[in-house]
Design a protein around this nucleic acid. Structure first.
Length: 521
DNA sequence: TGGAAGTGTCATAGG
DNA sequence: GGCCTATGACACTTC
């Protein structure tokens, strides 16, 4: 099980630049005080978060001042006019916009890298912002500015080690202590690892294709699989392979590999060094993470990638269909941003990619499950049949807390699905009732029209009958050829069809035809 | 900024 | 009595 990409020097610079953009915006987001929304109902925690937000706000203001100073300095050096409001405004851009907008520019390494851009921007609704806006936002990052400048100007001739050293020397003292070290750490890691083997142009641009490619690689029997549940990326050859552990928020696992699933070739290292390289890489990135001001204590969002991997295995075994693929892709794109170990990025990208509330809930439950070191995931806890579930939890020796947690997760998950189905039923019922109302209205209109029609026909029939009645009376003659007076006589229709001429006086008294008077017409 | 819509969760009734 | 499902009510978020 391995995923292998090797890089040219230019591509490596692009990747470094890409990491810088991402890391810088993580930092920017934290500095901006963009908070991850965690609902726990605990007032004390809210107060603490409020205090933390104030501190972030103060830090953000200091950062803004530094940015303005840096921008002015840049103007003097380049002789170009850089409108300062853009950088200031960019500080107000939420990370969900600023991060995406920046890395989605045409010249962004992310967009130049189809794999990364496809994974990060799988949502069609995310439109790329203008390049100008993104560039202005990029310029708002002083550390990044230095680093990119060096990359642009000297990277073609200098080793990456020297680049990091230049960055380190050029930055002011306080910032050396922060981001530059971390960035240089990343650079050092990547600089050890480039070798051209497969052009990036061969990487598919479509996320589904990317996933399929990954699945094929994961399931390729030619690739060794040291530990499927703990490995996502490894290198091309056994000699040069560095196994990058699966990304997990709560442990010192690979963040780098999540964003850069390329080969880290350590052929120049000895075997022990090779074995140590991955932890070093991760450690460096962890240091970067910490030094850049990320708040680990508030990090939320432990994510288990195993379901996706298992599903990928299922796919590779030919048991897949399009829905499964889409589901897995969704999981994959959902989980990808969570590996940043940053609550800000996690929250923002979670909300960007999927429904925020559900993702947060899943993240919290996943975190709890992982914190308890439970051997199964939230999905299993919720969706296993009762018997299988009871069998599973009985087979594991769980303490009371673990048992309660699992029961709680299962109860809430079940109830959540029940609520969803209940609401769906309610909506369907409402829709059916509305349709029934419309049908009844239509039926009422039809009956009304029919009634009017019948009324009209009845009226016409009465008119005809009156005319006929009068005509009959007009033609009736007695034995003396005299006509009958309609006021004294009337016609009455019997059930057998016979029409009688009745005297009104007699008919009114007896209400029946008399023997002498009836005259059949 | 208020309101509508959506969602998760809890409490409760009923099977 | 315990478990599950359905549903009303509430809180919260997002638009």
């Amino acid at each position: 099980m391995s995923l292998t990409f090797t890089l040219s020097r230019k591509q490596s610079r692009d990747i470094v630049r890409h990491f810088i953009v991402l890391v810088s915006y993580i930092r920017q987001d934290v500095d901006l005080g963009v908070e991850r929304d965690i609902f726990d109902g605990c007032l004390r925690q809210r107060e603490e978060e409020t205090t933390r937000a104030r501190e972030r706000e103060l830090k953000r203001e200091r950062e803004l001042e530094r940015i303005m100073q840096r921008l002015q300095k840049l103007d003097k050096e380049t002789g170009e006019f850089l409108p300062s409001p853009s950088s200031v405004n960019s500080q107000a851009v939420p990370l969900s916009e600023s991060l995406l907008s920046t890395v989605f520019t045409q010249r962004s390494p992310v967009t130049q890298n189809p794999l990364l851009s496809a994974l990060l921007f799988s949502q069609k609704s995310q439109k790329p912002p203008s390049q100008e806006q993104a560039f202005s936002e990029l310029l708002s990052l002083p550390d990044l500015q230095y680093y990119l400048d060096v990359l642009e100007s000297e990277a073609s001739s200098l080793p990456l080690d020297d680049i990091t050293e230049i960055c380190h020397q050029n930055l002011p003292e306080p910032q050396r202590e922060n981001s530059t070290d971390a960035l240089c750490g990343i650079t050092q890691t990547i600089s050890d690892s480039f070798e051209v083997a497969q052009p990036l142009s061969s990487i598919p641009s479509d996320p589904v294709e990317i996933l399929e490619t990954c699945i094929q690689m994961f399931s390729d029997p030619r690739n060794p699989t040291p530990s499927p549940s703990n490995t996502i990326y490894s290198c091309s050859t056994p000699e040069n392979q560095v196994i990058l552990p699966k990304c997990q928020i709560n442990s010192s696992d690979s963040t780098l590999s999540e964003f850069c699933p390329y080969t880290i070739n350590t052929s120049s290292l000895s075997k022990p060094e090779q074995l140590n390289r991955a932890p070093q890489t991760l450690l460096q990135f962890e240091e970067c993470h910490i030094l850049l001001g990320f708040d680990d204590s508030a990090s939320v969002g432990s994510v288990d990638l195993e379901p996706s991997l298992y599903a990928a295995d299922t796919l590779s075994n030919g048991q897949s269909d399009k829905d499964e693929l889409e589901s897995i892709l969704s999981d994959y794109t959902d989980l990808l941003p969570l590996s940043l170990h940053s609550e800000a990025v996690e929250a923002t990208l979670c909300e960007t990619v999927t429904g925020a509330a559900e993702v947060r809930r899943v993240c919290r439950d996943e975190q709890r499950v992982q914190a308890m070191s439970l051997p199964f995931g939230v999905h299993d806890i919720i969706n296993l049949p009762v018997e299988a579930f009871n069998e599973t939890i009985s087979s594991c020796k769980l303490n009371h807390t673990q048992h309660s947690l699992i029961r709680d997760i299962r109860r809430r998950g079940k109830n959540k699905m029940a609520a969803q189905s209940c609401r769906k039923r309610k909506m369907n019922s409402l829709t059916d009732l509305e349709e029934e109302i419309e049908d009844l209205k239509r039926e009422k209109e039809q009956i009304k029209e029919e009634n009017e029609k019948n009324t009209r026909e009845l009226h016409e029939t009465k008119v005809k009958l009156r005319k006929l009645y009068n005509e009959v009376f007009r033609q009736l003659r007695d034995e003396h050829e005299n006509s009958y007076n309609p006021r004294e006589y009337k016609l009455q229709h019997s059930t057998d069809g016979t029409v009688y001429l009745l005297s009104r006086r007699t008919a009114d008294k007896t209400n029946t035809p008399t023997e002498d008077l009836p005259i059949a017409v």
